[in-house]
Measured scan of single mutants.
Amino acid sequence: MEVVDPQQLGMFTEGELMSVGMDTFIHRIDSTEVIYQPRRKRAKLIGKYLMGDLLGEGSYGKVKEVLDSETLCRRAVKILKKKKLRRIPNGEANVKKEIQLLRRLRHKNVIQLVDVLYNEEKQKMYMVMEYCVCGMQEMLDSVPEKRFPVCQAHGYFCQLIDGLEYLHSQGIVHKDIKPGNLLLTTGGTLKISDLGVAEALHPFAADDTCRTSQGSPAFQPPEIANGLDTFSGFKVDIWSAGVTLYNITTGLYPFEGDNIYKLFENIGKGSYAIPGDCGPPLSDLLKGMLEYEPAKRFSIRQIRQHSWFRKKHPPAEAPVPIPPSPDTKDRWRSMTVVPYLEDLHGADEDEDLFDIEDDIIYTQDFTVPGQVPEEEASHNGQRRGLPKAVCMNGTEAAQLSTKSRAEGRAPNPARKACSASSKIRRLSACKQQ
Rank of each mutant, 00 (worst) to 15 (best):
I88R: 15
K82A: 11
L263S: 08
C134M: 01
S169H: 12
A377V: 10
T24V: 04
G187L: 09
I248Y: 01
N94W: 01
R409N: 13
K62W: 11
A389P: 10
E145P: 10
E199N: 13
D176G: 00
M129F: 06
L344E: 09
D229K: 03
Q170V: 09
T32P: 12
R40K: 06
D350N: 06
E92T: 15
I99F: 15
K269S: 11
G381T: 15
E14M: 15
F298I: 10
I238M: 04
V4F: 05
E14F: 07
I99G: 04
N393D: 06
A43W: 06
S334A: 05
I88M: 05
I360M: 04
Y49C: 06
A406W: 12
M335H: 00
F219W: 12
E199W: 01
K388E: 11
L167S: 01
D208R: 14
I224Q: 03
E138A: 07
R39V: 08
R405F: 14
E33V: 02
E342P: 13
T250W: 12
D348A: 13
H27Y: 09
D229Q: 12
T71F: 08
E199A: 12
E317I: 14
Y60N: 03
Q220C: 08
V116A: 01
E407R: 13
P369G: 14
Y60I: 09
Q382T: 09
F309G: 00
Q364I: 09
R74C: 07
F204D: 07
D68N: 10
G187S: 15
M51I: 08
L54Y: 12
G135P: 15
M18E: 14
A198R: 01
Y253D: 04
E376S: 14
E375I: 14
K178R: 03
M127G: 02
D53W: 01
V368L: 10
A43Q: 00
V95G: 02
Q152S: 03
R333L: 10
V368A: 11
C158A: 11
C278D: 06
Q305C: 09
K178G: 02
V95C: 05
T230H: 12
E98R: 01
F354W: 01
D355C: 10
Q112M: 05
R74V: 03
E98G: 02
D176P: 00
G15P: 15
R28A: 13
L285R: 00
S142N: 08
K388L: 04
P369S: 13
Y246E: 01
Y272F: 09
L102Q: 12
Q152E: 04
G346F: 09
S271A: 07
V390D: 11
H107R: 01
E396S: 08
S422Y: 13
L67W: 03
R425L: 11
L286G: 00
H313G: 07
S378N: 14
N226A: 15
Y362N: 12
C132N: 09
P413L: 10
A389D: 08
G268P: 06
D141M: 08
R87S: 06
N393I: 11
F264V: 03
C158S: 03
Q159I: 02
M129K: 10
Y166S: 05
G251E: 02
K235Y: 08
L160G: 00
T244S: 03
G268F: 08
R301A: 14
E374P: 11
G187T: 14
V320P: 14
G188R: 08
K312E: 04
G188V: 02
A206L: 06
T186F: 10
R384I: 06
E349C: 07
G227M: 15
P179D: 00
P6E: 09
V243N: 03
T209S: 04
L263T: 08
